[in-house]
Simulated assay, not measured.
Amino acid sequence: MSPVIQDFTYHRVPVADGVSLNAAVGGSGPAVVLLHGFPQTHLMWRHVAADLAADFTVICPDLRGYGASDKPVENGQDTYSKRTMAADVVALARALGHDRFALAGHDRGALVAFRAGLDHPATITHLACLDVLPTLDMWDVMHGVSAAVGWHLYLMAQPPGLPEKMIAAVPDAFFAAFLDDWVKDPSAIPAEFRAAYLAACREAIPSIVADYRASAGVDVVHDTADRARGARLRMPVTVVQQDWGAALGYDAVALWRPWTDDLVHRTTTAGHFMAEEAPKEVAHHLRELLAR
């Protein structure tokens, strides 16, 4: 039996034509939506969600194309654009009775959250992004041999066909590489959750690749247009990151500040999977954000 977030109720919610999302919901109070990253599912938020549920209604969905949510066939990059995935999240929250909500995302989920903040400023009250840069800035800082850390970004940016075949040949080895390489405390991801992540990824190779492909295409187009028009996140924003800037030679705060009116930037000594490795720290940062 697959693991679940204890004491949360599971829902399957239609959000777009032919697309429904799997979501775990718990607690009561103002709504907070938590979006997972790669190569994970909503389960990565289990500790933080339990903490926040004492004071908030917490909604933890599987993103379109991931976990137990629907995985539509890629029909152009808009199928898995962050704009489309952000619209899913807004529709999900509204279907559950929340026209306004706070939003936190990790990794891929943080890119969806960032897009939701730009596209739906009247809906998103607070925004947290964990361990990413905005898509446009991410590509700008990837250069030279330091770009090797993002080798998967370039693989999955290729046209449909070859990336999917290559990953499908060794799916567990491919996805496990990130769980192993990006974690500082392997015990933070117990065997049953690791197995659940790998099983979910095996079933989602085309949609995961499509998500990444969009980030090398249409997502860049959307970010470029927003940068040109001076778009900014108008809600309070918290960014929590590892100190990748020091390692790769960029100033993360300087990259985030042009996108935001109200920024708090924190660095963590936890690994990439900080919501599992340092859940009390992450919950603290989110509670501080929600109090602003």
Rank of each mutant, 00 (worst) to 15 (best):
F114R: 09
L133I: 11
R108D: 15
L111S: 14
R108E: 15
L130A: 05
P134L: 07
R100F: 00
D107H: 01
D119G: 11
H120D: 10
D119N: 11
L130T: 09
R115T: 09
P134S: 08
R100H: 04
I124V: 15
C129R: 12
A113I: 02
D99N: 13
V132E: 07
G105S: 10
T125V: 12
A116R: 04
L130K: 07
G109A: 04
V132K: 12
H120W: 09
A122L: 14
D99A: 13
G105Q: 11
A110F: 06
D131F: 07
L118C: 03
P134M: 05
D107G: 02
V132H: 10
H106E: 01
T125W: 13
G117T: 09
R100K: 10
P121Q: 05
A113T: 00
L127P: 10
I124N: 02
C129V: 14
C129G: 12
A104W: 09
L127H: 05
L111R: 15
A113M: 00
L136C: 12
R115L: 04
A122E: 15
D107M: 08
D131M: 08
A122G: 13
A104Y: 06
A128F: 01
A104N: 10
D119F: 09
A102W: 05
G117F: 09
D131V: 09
I124D: 01
A104I: 07
L133R: 04
R108P: 11
G117K: 02
L118N: 07
L130D: 02
A102E: 10
T123C: 08
H106F: 11
L136V: 15
L136A: 14
G117C: 06
C129A: 14
D107Q: 02
V112L: 02
D119C: 10
F101P: 06
D107W: 00
V132I: 15
D131Q: 05
F101R: 06
G117D: 01
A116I: 01
A104T: 12
H126P: 08
A110V: 00
R108C: 12
G117P: 03
F114I: 11
A102N: 10
A110L: 03
D99E: 15
L136T: 14
D99S: 15
P121A: 06
L133K: 05
H120Y: 12
D99R: 14
A104M: 12
F114D: 03
A116V: 02
G117M: 04
H120C: 11
P121R: 02
L118R: 01
D131P: 09
D107Y: 07
I124A: 01
T123M: 06
P134I: 05
L111I: 14
R108L: 15
R100P: 00
G117E: 01
G105H: 11
R108A: 13
C129L: 15
I124Y: 04
A104H: 07
D107E: 00
V112D: 01
D131E: 11
C129H: 13
H126C: 03
H126I: 06
R115W: 02
A113V: 07
I124W: 05
